[in-house]
């Protein structure tokens, strides 16, 4: 019996392999339209007629092939030092998400010239290609792509404790991580439920309105590290780990704004400075 079922899964897998985890209502599922390539249309929407070229020498994307939690999928973007100083902008895109553009990160002078890394967590709504696209100063677009198996990240509430999430919105932690003398590294965490607008309240029949961080601006000593403009695909309690350049003023300042127009600020400085 088990053998039969296992065989049948292979047949099913050819069309749509899936698993669901019942107790938490968690699922990962392959899209029935997984083979539908929507990237050409998406590329046109996001970048017009400009060429976007796969370029592992310019950008590397790390993502889990199978995400354990579709609402909390870690992504790491690495931009080699040779390219980093000429990179103006990084875009994260999840082809099949309701809002495919996760975020744009526009870099400033304090982003530094060494290897640039940026790590964050995203929601993945169905099996999809995930893309990191960097724009260099000459206006060319370089891309890294990874396929991620995860589903349900946008519509399923990741909120484990609804009251705590609302009460703490805007609370911010900035941690300066150990640095090896070259690029600095820091981790930014901001409490925010990041309501996607796709979560249905069965009792009222209405969707819970979208409410999310629209802008996160990070500066070191008054110089910009990056300015993020983001949407609903950034996970609840946004978490960004990033590299930046040292300077005479090592204070990091973060200003974030959500879709309600509320702003949240935080600063961090090295001990003893």
């Amino acid at each position: 019996m088990i053998h039969v079922e296992r065989r049948s899964v292979k047949v099913v897998a050819a069309l749509a392999m899936a698993f669901a985890v019942a107790a938490g209502g968690w699922i990962s599922a392959n899209a029935a339209d997984a083979d539908e390539d929507i990237w050409p249309a998406l590329q046109k929407d996001l970048f017009g007629d400009r060429a976007v070229v796969e370029d592992p020498a310019a950008v590397v994307l790390e993502a889990p092939y199978r995400a354990e939690d579709a609402a909390l999928v870690p992504l790491v973007v690495r931009i080699p030092a040779a390219v980093a100083s000429s990179v103006k902008k990084l875009s994260l895109v999840i082809d099949k998400n309701p809002a495919p553009l996760v975020a744009d990160f526009t870099f400033g002078p304090a982003a530094g010239k060494g290897e640039r890394t940026l790590e964050t967590r995203v929601r993945v709504d169905m099996y999809s290609n995930v893309r990191a696209i960097v724009e260099t100063e000459d206006g060319t677009l370089h891309m890294a792509t990874k396929f991620v198996k995860a589903a349900g990240g946008c519509s399923a509430p990741a909120l484990k404790d609804t009251d705590a999430a609302l009460a703490d919105a805007g609370k911010m932690q900035i941690k300066l991580l150990a640095d090896g003398g070259g690029q600095r590294e820091a981790q930014l965490k901001i409490r925010h439920p990041q309501y996607s607008g796709l979560q249905l309240n069965q009792a009222t029949g209405y969707y819970i309105p979208a409410k999310f961080l629209r802008v996160i601006d990070v500066q070191r000593g008054g110089d910009r590290v990056f300015r993020m403009e983001g949407g609903i695909s950034l996970s609840e309690n946004p978490n960004i780990r990033f590299t930046y350049a040292g300077g005479s003023d090592e204070t990091l300042k973060v200003v974030a704004e959500d879709t309600d127009g509320r702003t949240f600020t935080g600063t961090a400085a090295p001990k003893g400075s």
């Binding site: 079922e5 899964v9 099913v12 749509a16 899936a18 698993f19 669901a20 599922a29 029935a32």
Partner: peptide, 8 residues
């Protein structure tokens, strides 16, 4: 429609 089932 996306979830094919549980055979694991």
């Amino acid at each position: 429609a996306l979830v094919a089932g549980l055979f694991r």
